[in-house]
Design a protein around this nucleic acid. Structure first.
Lengths: 235, 235
DNA sequence: AAATGTAAGTGCGTTAACGTACAGACGGCA
DNA sequence: TGCCGTCTGTACGTTAACGCACTTACATTT
């Protein structure tokens, strides 16, 4: 995914930590690049590292009936991937796929658990992040049930814009269909509708957000709800 | 909800604790009766108590657009209600409604947090329970998206039978419609189909499971998946 | 025995999304 | 310049579920 990368992007969870805790944590992190399409975890397989995305972002996908898929979460520089380790389970809950190339800080599972033990501030923050994750899972469940594809697409584009830190990113209709759990043609139809309203433009996988406010109006309330919960809990 | 109550039902999470931890915890619990239809939490409002159901059980419901609802969890004697307190948030994530009358053990939020501090065994167990909850939320999301009402109904009946500890319980089509997020008529149709297959019988809200194995076959794989995760993580 | 309220069943047109197939458009590579 | 793979658009019949209205069935109360 080609995103117009803004430099100096850091991770919001790390930024919110007290200086000492952050330094201690950073000392144990390794800066890496997330590659588009890279699979970080497979469901039910071991979690070897946690990731604090700074520039890149990751889709959490769940599957059923060995062919039906659905994105249930999106992790960018507002979050962390692998937080379920702190629940004492080293098995990944979801298939985790790099959706936006970019930088991240990576830590081994064992040093994460060790540092977590040492930093109550990190503990509390990540507990809050877990709570947010739970609520977002429920929000996704009800959104997927009730909202039209067009509104869900608008929501997804907004969430992705936030995490890509750019109003342009690369994603094809086929991929969006996979993420939202609908037919590719369903995406084409919805995307075309947003195009006609001049909210977005796209060409062979390169999407540009033209009118963010308009997109927010076209999206379901779930975008706003998610954001509100995040801000309220992590404030 | 009238369930043929089996005596001596205890809570599986409590049972799994070491003797000392359990005794300590029980000393701070109050035995109460959950009343059918009682609202234990409202979303975004304070959590004053945690509940370990023994006989009764509780639906977790999320809402959107101020009229669309969906059950995202079911808590019986295999679980605990209010576990999100351990994430450092005292605001309820979901509307929590007593769905099956029966006994429970209740603890104030503050003594729960105090006892949690003192019992690493309880901490670990509830962290595992949180992990399970996350996975079940995702399972519900994808199930609601892809599975037919009849299969979802079968799944719900099985989950409820497990938690009611009885093959008979009270629930109307109207209520099921609310829980599964479909029209009442959709439930009538699905229930009628299960009736014709002689898997269940019902009359004015009294449902009886006639053929559990048959119901399992009629349900989607989500019932089995949920159960497997629970057993694997809490074993 | 009648009245009332709740539960469940039926019917009918509507709709969003489905599966499948095919055609056009674009871009990189030979 | 022409080819090929990928991306997007269109078309057509199908389907599960929708909204709404009405009927039938049952149980409790008076």
């Amino acid at each position: 995914m080609t995103t117009t990368q803004v430099n100096q992007i850091t991770n919001r969870l790390l930024d919110a930590l007290p200086f000492k805790d952050r330094e201690q944590l950073l000392a144990n992190c390794e800066a890496i690049e997330l590659i588009f399409g890279e699979v970080l975890y497979r469901a039910n397989e071991p979690v070897l590292h946690v990731y604090f995305p700074t520039g890149g972002f990751i889709s959490l996908v769940t599957s059923v009936d060995s062919s039906a898929n659905l994105e249930v979460g999106l992790v960018g520089n507002e979050g962390i991937l692998g937080v379920s380790l702190m629940l004492g389970v080293n098995v990944a809950p979801f298939y985790s796929l790099v959706q936006g190339a970019g930088s991240a800080l990576r830590m081994t599972a064992s040093s994460f658990l060790y540092e977590l033990e040492r930093s109550p501030a990190l503990q509390l923050e990540l507990k809050h992040y877990l709570y947010i994750t739970m609520r977002q899972l429920a929000q996704t469940a009800i959104c997927t049930r009730y909202h039209l594809v067009e509104a869900r697409l608008a929501r997804w584009l907004l969430m992705t814009q936030d995490r890509a830190h750019s109003d342009r990113f690369h994603v094809t209709h086929v991929f969006l269909a996979y993420i939202l759990g609908v037919r590719r043609v369903g995406i084409t139809k919805a995307a075309n509708s947003l195009l006609k309203k001049k909210l977005i433009s796209y060409k062979r996988g390169d999407i540009t957000i033209l009118d963010r406010a308009g997109l927010e109006a076209a999206s379901c309330e779930c975008y706003r709800v998610d954001k509100e919960i995040y801000e309220r809990i992590l404030a």
